[in-house]
Design a protein around this nucleic acid. Structure first.
Length: 832
DNA sequence: AGTATTGTATTTTTT
DNA sequence: ATACAATACT
């Protein structure tokens, strides 16, 4: 958290109370002077380049507003312009606007853009941030109302799981049958719905072997003991406080004169309640979102929130942003064609003035590797700018996959052909083991009571403290009712532990105490107090009870290095021979470097708990590989969408678990994917894919069916080596396809059928070096039960079932599988 | 106490 | 296939 000088609304018994008059000081500081002057001088230049819909969304300041912003319609621009307008018109001061986003990235971006639009750096907008970041601020101030101290720690998922595991074993629950992770997601799910343990409805009583609510209650109690919060709590506690203390709520309702919400379609129940409570007075709430881009249902988001907006806020102004500034008409048409399949949309029709451009390209491949190979080659030729397409930089190109395991094929391929790529998403910096370990040391120095941190590092590096020793520590701590670190000290003192471990443990405890002293700095005699640490309003946590400290002789960065060295942690990795050790040391160095931007360890820890991202981007153009989820909000001139096969996309699991609702979310994912593309969008699928080490064949995605024909061009794969793979013919080669289309009753796969029809109308248009070998498949429709057949990947087998164009075959080597008839050959028709 | 081995699960992910 | 975690060895 950077230290913004936040003016605080008055807040009960909190020590952060500030008299009202100080808000006026904030004014001068935060841009009130700017508004009057600027309004007179230039009549709202920020309004000039808005289109009518955007302008309406900006000018309609009072009352509820729902901004339905389709993909690429300038939503962020409108949102930031609205903030600027609120400020410039004098309707609100920077610290009276509550603007919430989901991600830190979005918050950062908005801050930047507001600053840029204002044409001056404003120090303000203290209440622009993620739901969680804002909730932390609120909760720190009212912690006591939630049974916490204001310096509570925020647990990450790791700590959470560890805690739950302890709880489970305490309850003699078999962690095998009832995994802690499952309990964690259950509790998370409940928290997302704003259910405290007592409010979990009876219908959920059966959850987790009928112990769910009970364990939830224990978990919450344990968190309170630890003075800790998980992510869900941040919202839940604040909502609970608002509900139980109308006076506190009323203060904030008055204070936040205008509320803005980004990505409203992603809000869960807790967030929805939070917003509704805060907007309850004046109802000056502007929600921005797109029901068609709701893709987080699986983690508690309720599309219903956005669909219901007009009911929740009667008289709401609904503004539709439909002019798209991102994609070509073909791409938009393809996207609309797909999303049309969903029921109960609020309905938007995107349009654009852009030139027609390329059609969406569609191509099928033999298997996943072939798909990756083709895309690799395609990217190389896009880089060169062949075939009348413009030249693209690798930075312009993205590959968006449904599930992260699909990335591997591309990484493998790109590594072998030496194509630079970057994977977006994936495990983040602060989630890496070495970083968490290091952070646990820091946490322990900052708050010696942090038992979870202690557990993490007690025996890292190895100190000869195994299960038994750790149990002794636990027992001692419990006996004396003290923290683990204190328990450890006592256990050593009383010689409950002996030998090598005890010595090491003593050293650890002494070290921790010494580091803490170093951090706190020398104790000054009264009167000697240094230039009053007129302390940071935003970060009360670490100052509790620690006044009159002088300046430490070590900077917090030096201290961090000392901690890592003296604890033996650095040495542990230096002695490690595994190939990842150097990288980990590198990461540790980076961690220390990251400290630079903070005033102290505490500030850093707070930041990391919430931010958890670290964008260290190496230079050089690279292709981006990411999941569709990670791609939301991004755009690329050129997008590849591989793996459009039924079962993979739409994901089978999603459909099994959530039925039509799941399918519709998958469809929105398809919509998000297509609308990421500015100029060129290439969809592909593979007939065969290795899933969990087993080869499986699949049908083209049903979404392919839904692509409007007029906007799609079917490409032919570049064949697969003459005489090599006969199946190449199934996909490629004009005339062959046409002939087979005539006997098409076997080709019943929905997507496939249409694909063929199109193909026959429009002979292949991309004759790259024509390596295609057209091998006519014969008698594909002539399969019979019991027939002996051959399959490229699975070898020989016998047909045990026929369903449409799918055959069930008992293969001699690879067992029973369902495969598409197209890939199967009669025994005497092996295409070699 | 630390390592080897076996077993098992395997969408999507922010905070 | 493969990673990761929990049990089984040394």
């Amino acid at each position: 958290m950077n230290k913004c000088r936040t003016a605080l609304p008055t807040a009960g018994p909190s020590r952060y109370f500030r008299p009202m008059s100080s808000f006026d000081d904030m004014d001068a500081f935060e841009g009130a002077s700017l508004s009057a002057r600027a309004m007179a001088a230039r009549p709202a230049p920020y309004l000039d380049d808005l289109n009518p819909a955007q302008r309406e969304a900006v000018l309609q300041m009072d009352g509820p507003v729902l901004m339905l912003a389709g993909a690429g319609t300038g939503k962020t621009k409108a949102l930031t312009a609205r903030i600027v307008h609120l400020l410039m018109s004098g309707n609100a001061r920077a610290n009276e606007i509550l603007a919430v986003t989901f991600t830190n990235k979005a918050a950062r971006e908005m801050k930047e853009r507001v600053g840029r639009m204002l044409g001056q750096q404003i120090e303000g907008m203290p209440w622009l941030g993620t739901f969680h970041a804002i909730c932390v601020k609120l909760l720190r101030r009212h912690a006591e109302l939630a049974g916490l101290k204001s310096n509570f720690t925020i647990l990450d998922t790791d700590d959470q799981i560890r805690l739950l595991k302890q709880l489970l074993s305490l309850n003699n629950i078999d962690e095998k049958r009832w995994p802690a992770r499952q309990l964690a997601s259950l509790i998370d799910h409940w928290k997302n719905r704003a259910w405290t343990p007592s409010k979990v409805p009876a219908s959920e009583a059966g959850a987790f072997n009928h112990r769910g609510t009970e364990l939830y209650e224990q978990y919450q109690a344990r968190l309170r003991e630890l003075n800790a919060c998980d992510f869900g709590d941040l919202l839940l506690h604040v909502v609970t406080i608002f509900q139980a203390h109308p006076d506190v709520l009323a203060q904030y309702q008055r204070w936040f004169r205008y509320i803005l919400v980004d990505e409203y379609q992603d809000t869960n129940v807790a967030q929805y309640l939070w917003l509704r409570l805060l907007a309850g007075g004046h109802k000056n709430i502007c929600c921005v979102g797109d029901d068609d881009q709701s893709i987080y249902g699986w983690r508690g988001a309720e599309v219903g929130n956005i669909l219901r907006f007009e009911k929740d806020f009667p008289g709401a102004h609904v503004v539709r942003l439909e002019q798209n500034y991102r994609s070509t008409p073909h791409i938009l048409a393809a996207a609309s064609g797909v999303i049309r399949g969903n029921e109960g949309r609020l309905g938007k029709e995107l349009w654009t003035q852009a030139e027609e451009g390329e059609k969406v390209r569609l191509i099928g491949h033999w298997d996943g590797e072939e798909e990756a190979r083709w895309i690799g080659e395609e990217i190389e030729s896009l880089q060169k700018g062949t075939r009348g397409l413009r030249q693209y930089s690798l930075d312009d190109i993205a590959i968006l996959v449904r599930a992260s395991h699909q990335m591997r094929a591309f990484e493998d391929r790109f590594l072998t052909i030496g194509l630079p790529y970057r994977v977006i998403g994936g495990p983040r910096f602060y989630e890496r083991m070495e970083i968490r370990d290091a952070m646990a040391y820091f946490r322990l120095v900052v708050s010696p009571d942090d038992d979870l941190a202690f557990e993490r590092i007690v025996n890292t590096p190895k100190r000869g403290l195994g299960d038994k020793a750790q149990q002794t520590i636990q027992a001692t701590a419990r006996e004396f009712g003290v923290s683990l670190i204190e328990g450890a000290r006592i256990a050593v003192e009383e010689e409950r532990l002996r030998g090598k471990g005890a010595g090491q443990l003593r050293m650890l405890c002494e070290n921790l105490a010494r580091w803490r002293e170093t951090m706190l700095g020398p104790v000054l005699r009264p009167g000697e107090a240094e230039d009053s640490a007129d302390v940071i309003d935003d970060e009360p946590a670490f100052l509790v009870g620690e006044t009159r400290r002088g300046t430490p002789e070590l900077s917090h960065m030096e201290l961090a290095e000392v901690i890592l060295d003296e604890s033996g942690y650095t040495a542990m990795w230096q002695n490690d021979k595994t190939p990842e050790a150097p990288g980990r040391l590198e990461n540790l160095k980076e961690l220390v470097k990251a400290l630079e931007q903070f005033e102290n360890l505490q500030g850093f820890l707070e930041h990391v708990a919430l931010i958890m991202d670290n964008e260290s981007e190496e230079a050089g153009a690279k292709v981006s590989i990411m999941t569709l989820h990670a791609a939301k909000g991004l755009e690329f001139p050129c997008v590849f969408l591989p793996g459009w096969e039924d079962g993979l996309f739409p994901s089978q699991r999603s459909m099994d678990e959530s039925g039509l609702k799941g399918l519709e979310e998958e469809r929105r994912l398809a919509y998000v994917g297509i609308t990421r593309a500015e100029e060129l969008c290439t969809i592909s699928f593979a007939g065969n894919r290795r899933v969990f080490g087993q080869w499986q064949s699949a049908l083209p995605s049903r979404f392919i069916d839904e692509l409007p024909e007029a906007h799609v061009e079917v490409l032919t794969p570049p064949g697969l080596y003459g005489g090599g793979y006969g199946a190449a013919a199934a996909y490629g080669g004009g005339s062959g396809l046409e002939t087979r289309a005539a006997e098409a009753n076997v080709y019943n796969s929905p997507g496939w059928k249409r694909l063929q029809e199109r193909s026959s109308q429009r002979p292949v248009s991309q004759p790259r070096e024509s390596r295609n070998t057209v091998i006519d498949l014969q008698a594909v429709s002539a399969f019979e039960m019991g027939q002996r057949v051959f399959h490229q990947k699975f070898g020989y087998g016998e047909i045990t079932g026929i369903e449409g164009d799918k055959l069930e075959i008992a293969f001699e080597k690879s067992g029973v599988k369902k495969v598409v008839a197209r890939f199967v050959h009669a025994e005497d028709d092996v295409p070699f």
